[in-house]
């Protein structure tokens, strides 16, 4: 995680508030942010847009062997969340009991620690999702 600081700082709008992009030409939403609309290319007109904070589980997996920095968090759920605007977001699922984690389960965004750059480095915060009743 060394030298993670520039990346952590750059991703704050995306990770804190689900800030994505919207193309004013074809009306498509994108997350994470794009600099060019893949449909419209040079005709595209991208502006910042907050993504909806509620969605549903599109697919999920239970991680038993986490990568460095996440190895003590296992087992945890990693899910693809589909938002109402059809945008898909990869996210950890937290505060969700095993029997409620299902394809199609309604979820909402929560704010959590993502990782820390060692014991003395910066802390990356951002979105995770939880299953709601």
């Amino acid at each position: 995680m060394r030298d993670a600081l520039p990346l952590i700082w750059r991703k704050i709008p995306e990770r804190y508030t689900l800030l994505g992009s919207h193309c004013n030409n074809c009306k498509t939403d994108y997350f994470p942010q794009r600099t060019i609309c893949p449909h419209c290319r040079s005709k595209g007109k991208l502006v910042d847009k907050q993504m909806p904070r509620e969605g549903k589980v599109y697919s999920f997996t239970e991680v038993h062997s986490g990568p460095a920095g996440f190895q003590h968090e296992t087992p945890y759920f990693l899910a693809i969340i589909e938002l109402p605007n059809k945008v898909k977001v990869l996210s950890q699922l937290v505060d969700s009991s095993k029997d409620k984690v299902k394809v199609g389960a309604p979820v909402k965004m929560v704010f959590r620690r993502i990782f820390a750059d060692g014991a003395e480095g910066v802390i990356a915060y951002g979105f995770k999702f939880k299953v709601v009743n």
Partner: peptide, 16 residues
């Protein structure tokens, strides 16, 4: 608080 919660995440959730 869970391993990924602290006084900052709680402050954000309450504020939202």
């Amino acid at each position: 608080a869970a391993f990924d919660e602290d006084s900052a995440t709680i402050a954000v959730e309450a504020s939202r």
